[in-house]
Design a protein around this nucleic acid. Structure first.
Lengths: 100, 100
DNA sequence: TTCCCCACTTTCCGTTATGGAAAGTCTTGT
DNA sequence: ACAAGACTTTCCATAACGGAAAGTGGGGAA
């Protein structure tokens, strides 16, 4: 009894509050725009930018740029490995908080 | 659709990995000893001691000392407010990670 | 009583993480 | 060429963290 629940894996990079919410916001959608995330998270541009960079450097998210009405924008999306890591981390959280 | 799930409340003090695991370890039991927690968490005494202090300062855990076989020991337990905070935080985590 | 030990606590130290303001970069419309 | 928007980086000041090492306190042992 006490199976390691398949692939639960705690990930400190994802665990930080803001990054956890970024991943959670991206998980159910195809992609999200910078402004959208900033609105959800309510942080300064610089802060969001830096957290996105960390996730991107880890290969957890991909960023595409495009133009809309003459302005540049970015589409952020979870990569395959990012989704795996996020799902595994959520599984780890559920395992940890399973009792009580 | 989208009810604020009663009392979900993200708590940064509890969110930190080690403290989350401390709370999770305490949630299903009446109390746990220092050595037991240290074994579960696998951290240095000083580290565990400091995290316990933070939780105690916040009123989330209570500490009782007792003697066993001539040696001193402590019993750590979640206080009522500590349990509330922990449960609320877990609820917040589930809300955040509900999608995807 | 003095000394030793055990079970934590604190202090010290170096490293990393965070957040925001401000300045910088790039791209595109005028 | 210039302005503006949408991020990026830099600069700065805090605030965690973690662990080793030194410090405390209480209880036996001698």
């Amino acid at each position: 009894m006490n199976k390691p629940s398949s692939n639960a894996q705690f990930d400190e990079l994802i665990h930080a509050p803001i990054r956890l919410r970024i991943c959670a916001s991206l998980a159910p959608v195809q992609w999200a725009e910078f402004a959208h995330l900033r609105g959800i998270l309510d942080v300064a541009d610089s802060v969001l930018s830096k957290h996105l960079k960390q996730l991107a450097d880890a290969g957890y998210i991909g960023i595409e740029r495009f133009t809309k009405l003459g302005r540049s924008h970015m589409r952020v999306s979870l990569t395959k490995s990012g989704r795996r890591a996020y799902v595994s981390h959520v599984a780890a959280l559920r395992e940890i908080t399973a009792g009580g």
